[in-house]
């Protein structure tokens, strides 16, 4: 099997980088003109969103935002007490283009998708794993050093296009991409201030 690794800055607001493991394209790699060719696949509706999935459940790894980063600018080692909260962790994520809008927050349950409910249902099915382990860490930070707790993760990405119809008239259109997070890894890293 040919391993194709594509590394690009992510459109997902809470991710720094997404790497596609196998063949495929992320939403970032589509120009609007690329997406145009998929719109004819959409079924026009009297009212509501019509969607077409371009690629489904592509395996990805990602680097998310830093969970915390704490600098010590003093001459003495200090201890930072960190309490893990799943609220700040990466959960499922969505990216959109064009006219599609979403109140893009990191937790699936409070996503307020304003488009096709079939896309929304794709995001809801993982929400049952929303409770994460409790975790307390006391971390010694040497003088003039910065300690960061970072996240890598694995997940599956699906993307496609949608169009909103009112009285069979297309009003809005755009591309979307859903990341279904399956696993997260943490690592502690020291950096210079």
């Amino acid at each position: 099997m040919i391993l194709i690794i594509i590394m690009i800055l992510s459109m997902h607001q809470n991710l720094e980088e997404i790497t596609l493991i196998n063949e495929g394209r992320l939403l970032e790699e589509y120009e609007e003109i690329d997406l145009e060719k998929y719109y004819p696949n959409l079924e026009s509706k009297f009212f509501g969103w019509s969607s077409h999935i371009i690629q489904e459940d592509m395996d990805v790894v990602f680097i998310s935002e830093t969970l915390f980063s704490y600098s010590n600018q003093s001459n003495e080692t200090i201890t930072y007490k960190y309490t893990y909260s799943s609220d700040v962790d990466i959960s499922d994520s969505i990216a959109v283009t064009g006219d599609i809008s979403t109140s893009a927050k990191t937790k699936v349950k409070i996503f307020d998708l304003k488009f096709d409910s079939s896309i929304k249902s794709r995001m809801d099915y993982k929400s049952s794993e929303s409770i994460s382990e409790k975790w307390n860490l006391d971390i010694d930070i040497p003088p003039f050093k910065k300690i960061s707790l970072k996240i890598k993760g694995e997940g599956k990405v699906s993307n496609g296009v949608s169009r909103l119809y009112i009285f069979y008239i297309p009003i809005k259109k755009g591309g979307w991409e859903v990341l279904d997070v399956t696993k997260t890894y943490y690592w502690l890293e020291e950096e210079y201030v």
């Binding site: 893990y84 962790d89 794993e129 929303s130 409770i131 994460s132 382990e133 975790w135 860490l137 006391d138 399956t182 696993k183 997260t184 890894y185 943490y186 690592w187 502690l188």
Partner: peptide, 12 residues
């Protein structure tokens, strides 16, 4: 050395 959560897949 304090316990570290290396991987998080939720409780189940």
């Amino acid at each position: 050395i304090d316990d570290f959560m290396f991987v998080n897949e939720g409780y189940f």
